[in-house]
Amino acid sequence: MINFVLLISRQGKVRLTKWYSPYTQKERTKRLGTKEGEKDIYRMARIRERKTRDINPNQMYQGWGRPTPDAFVRRIQETEIEEALKRMKSGKAMGPDGIPIEVIRELSGLILTRGPKLCNFVEWRGYKVVYRRYASLYFCMCVDADDNELEILEIIHHFVEILDRYFGSVCELDLIFNFHKAYYILDEILIAGELQESSKKNVARLIAAQDSLVEAAKEEASSISNIIAQATK
């Protein structure tokens, strides 16, 4: 599953972010730095640990690593708890959706410094970030450690091709001033962090339909205001 999508420029400016799993929960951020906050973290860790154990034992069959629940649900590690605690203590501001801006900063530091001939995958906090550079823009998708990396790499390209078709040879400037369009388009490609449509034609058609609905509403509104203006003359 894709946990989040991130578009950053070479200068580290964010051009789009979309999160499919809340990075941290708001309730916890409210209790920043308190004793209870620490307890919460450990409680969460325990629940998570238990989850990895309690899944139907019938399916604990022997086989290759991936499908066993243990491999499937990532175990929380001590270092992660430490890290989380560190983050909490510093009391850093988190966005309203509970995403520390630090995540973005950390990732851009990791990705933007990579040379051109390296692989497109970066391992990060137990996840993998698949990224691809197009001119001055980096498209990044953070996925679970056992996801198929190349598949994600091509989802990125699929997204870029659709943007390209929509804007007619897309450039960074298009995405800056039309960032909302980029969000509309992304929503037609991904839902819940999964690919929903692999046909470029279908996506293009749906976006065009949306655009014409908005246009139609605009015309209607202006004709109504004309009528009102005429009536009140």
Partner: peptide, 12 residues
């Protein structure tokens, strides 16, 4: 719909 799904998270 779109801005809500970007600005808020499930716990809001």
């Amino acid at each position: 719909y779109i801005v809500t799904s970007c600005l808020l998270n499930e716990n809001n």
